[in-house]
Amino acid sequence: MKSDIIKELRMGIRTSRFLVIIASFLFFAILTPIMMKYILPQLLHNQFQGMNEASISQMIDMSQKGALLGYMSDLFEIGTIIVVFALSGLLAQEIKENTLVLPICSGKKLLSIVGSKLLVFSVFLILASTLGMVISYLYAGILFSFDIGLWPVLVIGLLYGGYMIFLLSLAMLFGTFIKNAIGTGFMTLGFSLFIYFIGSYFKLHTYLPSGLLIGAQGILNNQADQNLGITLALFLIMVFVISKITLIRLENKEWNER
């Protein structure tokens, strides 16, 4: 298990997967508050000449909270795409390029291979998402004013990280069906958007991983109308089940075929 974890860490660093995800999170964490503070008001000003400051601040929430909400929606729109495509090759590529054949022959357990992938990238996603949130929080705080505590921000970071773990497990599962990394990425994205849609349409977010995102927004808006415990428990069960299916699919696979 230890050597598998080291291997995944090296993979993350040397194929610059870690870099891609961290850089894009930080980029949006800094960009969004700046957009809110300087660029958006000026753009609106240019568009509607007669508008005064007051009505502009009515249209956009010019506060730390508003900036964080903006960052969260950026993360959902662009962050997830980047995360999914950066991690879609995790299993798909290994299966396509037969790189798992030698490890399997030398006695590596599939459980430990899949487990260490899940572990390393889950921890990384949690850290990256929390770090991004905190940076955005600090930046927005400096630009506007600090009017939220740090604690809810950390919780939001964890919840977003959790949603990305769900995407990671999905990408691994679809990787066992489609051998193509890009195809896996599109399928994962499509499926996650489908779930989000289902959650919105039937008001089922509480029971779906997308509830983590809604719950995070709820925390920021001080609306605790959702039972986060249920969402979290179901999310953990879902990740576990998806990983188990991935494992079963790998165990019944014939390797090294042409």
């Binding site: 980029f27 800094i30 700046i34 300087y38 660029i39 400096i142």
Partner: peptide, 18 residues
């Protein structure tokens, strides 16, 4: 869009990442 001095300082980290 007007570029103020303050804004440039705030934009620096973004520039650095880019």
């Amino acid at each position: 869009i007007e570029l103020t001095g303050e804004m440039i300082i705030m934009l620096l980290p973004l520039l650095a990442i880019q």
